[in-house]
C-alpha cells in the first residue's frame, strides 16, 4: 500500500457474498483484500472487499450479475 494509492470498498449483505466475490476476483486476477468494515462506513460487524480505486470499473464488471453488491464506498 503506497501512501498515494487510494482505495474503495465493496459492501455485501453477508460474508458469503464477500467470499464469492473474492473467488471471482482471484480468478480474474484483480487485486483486492477482505478487511473488516470500517466503522465510519457501516455499523455492521462483517467484512468488506477493499480494492485500488483505479480498478473499480473492472471489478464491478467482473462481479456484475454474479454477486449482489450492497454499496460501493471510497475508503478514506
Amino acid at each position: 500500500m503506497t501512501p498515494e494509492e487510494t482505495y474503495g470498498v465493496l459492501l455485501f449483505q453477508s460474508v458469503s457474498y464477500a467470499i464469492k466475490a473474492e473467488k471471482i476476483l482471484l480468478a480474474a486476477g484483480l487485486p483486492h483484500k477482505l478487511i473488516p468494515v470500517p466503522r465510519h462506513i457501516s455499523s455492521d460487524c462483517g467484512v468488506c472487499l477493499r480494492f485500488p480505486s483505479g480498478l473499480e470499473e473492472r471489478i464491478l464488471r467482473a462481479l456484475e450479475g454474479q454477486v449482489e453488491i450492497d454499496a460501493v464506498h471510497p475508503l478514506k
Binding site: 460474508v15 467470499i19 477482505l34 462483517g46
Partner: peptide, 15 residues
C-alpha cells in the same frame, strides 16, 4: 462471518 480478521475469513472460505 463474525469478524474481519484472518481466522474468521479463513473459516468463511472453508464454508
Amino acid at each position: 462471518g463474525r469478524s474481519g480478521h484472518r481466522l474468521s475469513i479463513a473459516a468463511a472460505r472453508v464454508i
